[in-house]
Nucleic acid binder design. Structure first.
Length: 418
DNA sequence: TCTGGGGTCCTGCCTCGT
DNA sequence: TCTGACGAGGCAGGACCC
């Protein structure tokens, strides 16, 4: 498996057992900071804080030199500066990170076609089918690390395991610039002593709820009765963590994930009370979202807004539109109307607009129905109905129109029959 | 101390159509 | 025509991830 290296990492030695593994989780080390150093080598070795230097921004990323002072992502920049006064503050350049990310993903895709990008700086790779080409999963992990460093110029850490969850946990433990292989037979041994907080999908709230019941390690989860887990974190998460605690994770590497929503939100430097200004902001944000929709060839059937007041209470409102759209003006008007349904007149700290229920633009509702499996279900239901009520009265689903509002046919059960 | 911005997923409640 | 059960979708809020 792996051993501590005296730097707080757990890494696997060369030639470590990788039997039963097939998933790699690759995570770039302090990615934003690394890209900034590539761009300006004079920053190398300095404590770096990536975040806007003024206003109410938080740390997007920090170099390992800054992390030694306790600087962490999502921490307010002002607090990070207090912890590490010598740090250099670098405003984020997301377009740079995207460009380097594309390079890195290109390296992955030259090794296996089964790549699932999780974010700009990490991805899952399924290497089961390319072992004859590149070697065992452990050898492929070494190859990935070497090629990313030589071809892109940054380091990464790789977890190798039989499942996504274990690979992800392994890459976290071997950071920075490490590799950790968990052979399938040692999955339980690896998981059991680790904190519930180390599980992917268990955040502070869920961890608190588990610990309040004496469930502190993943081994404890495995031993706990299912109904106790369900009461603590809800049935969905309860079932998931129970399976994960036994090393069961059937999720495949998904190479074609599609976006489900696109949005923009903005925290103001100074809280805003003026309604005209807020309406104008909603329109501006809607325009930005609409531009992204059109660029991607999507339209949205629903618009949502988010409003955060000065006391940090956050409200959201959403509405299904009469017609799907990618027109900024229409989305903006919907956002403004939603905003007016909120009675509060308190100062607003943040405002956001999100496009939901995305679909391909232009007659796209019909694309929803361009699905053989769906049609088999519809036709199956119609056949049943014909058998029960007589074929003369049953012809076909009445409406195939746009929209998903109430009454719109979605399931065979609710189709109007004629 | 003072909490970004981009997302996904889940839960509970409500309403509507059958 | 009325009523209740039920399933499904809409909506709001929250947790979580990077």
């Amino acid at each position: 498996m792996g051993r501590g290296d005296g730097r707080g990492r757990v890494v696997s030695p060369d030639g470590a057992d990788d039997s039963g593994t097939r998933i790699l989780h690759v995570d770039m080390d302090a990615f934003y900071a690394a890209v900034e150093v590539m761009h300006d080598p004079s920053l190398a070795g300095l404590p770096l804080i990536i975040g806007a230097p003024d206003g109410r921004s938080v740390v997007s990323s920090a170099s390992y030199e800054a992390r030694r002072y306790g600087v962490r992502a999502a921490m307010p920049v002002a607090q990070a500066v207090r912890l590490c006064p010598s740090a250099r503050i670098v405003p984020p350049h997301f377009e740079r990170y995207q460009a380097v990310s594309r390079q890195v993903m290109g390296v992955f895709e030259s090794i296996t076609p089964l790549v699932e990008p999780l974010s700009v700086d990490e991805a899952f790779l399924d290497v089961r089918g390319v072992r004859r080409l590149w070697g065992s999963p452990g050898e492929i992990a070494r190859l990935v690390r070497a090629r990313v460093e030589s071809e892109v110029g940054i380091t990464c850490s790789v977890g190798v395991a039989a499942t996504k969850h274990v690979a992800k946990m392994a890459s976290t433990l071997c950071k920075p610039d490490g590799m950790l292989i968990i052979p399938e037979s040692q999955t339980i041994e690896f998981l059991s002593p680790r904190s519930v907080r180390a599980m992917w999908g268990v955040g502070p709230k869920a961890a608190d709820a588990l610990e309040a019941r004496g469930i502190r390690t993943i081994g404890d989860i495995r031993e706990a009765p299912q109904d106790m887990l369900d009461r603590a974190v809800g049935p969905a998460l309860g079932a998931r963590i129970a399976a994960l605690s036994r090393g069961v994770d059937h999720r495949a590497v998904d190479t074609d994930r599609v976006e489900k929503s696109i949005g923009h939100e903005e925290t103001f430097d100074v809280d805003i009370t003026d309604r005209e200004t807020l309406h104008a902001e909603l329109l501006r944000l809607a325009d930005r979202v609409a531009a992204r929709l059109r660029k991607a060839g999507w339209e949205c059937a629903s618009v949502a807004i988010k409003v955060r007041f000065d006391d940090f209470t956050t409200l959201s409102r959403s509405q299904t539109l009469p017609e799907p759209t990618s027109v900024g003006q229409r989305m903006g008007e919907a956002a403004q109307a939603l905003f007016e349904t909120i009675g509060r007149r308190d100062p607003v700290r943040l405002i956001g607009v999100r496009a939901e229920k995305l679909r391909p633009a232009g007659g796209a509702a019909f694309a929803l129905w361009d699905d053989d499996e769906h049609w088999r279900k519809v036709e199956g239901a119609l056949d049943d109905a014909r058998a029960r009520f007589g074929s003369a009265t049953i012809t076909r689903a009445r409406h195939l129109g746009r929209g998903e509002g109430r009454g719109a046919p979605k399931h065979p059960k609710s189709h109007g029959l004629e």
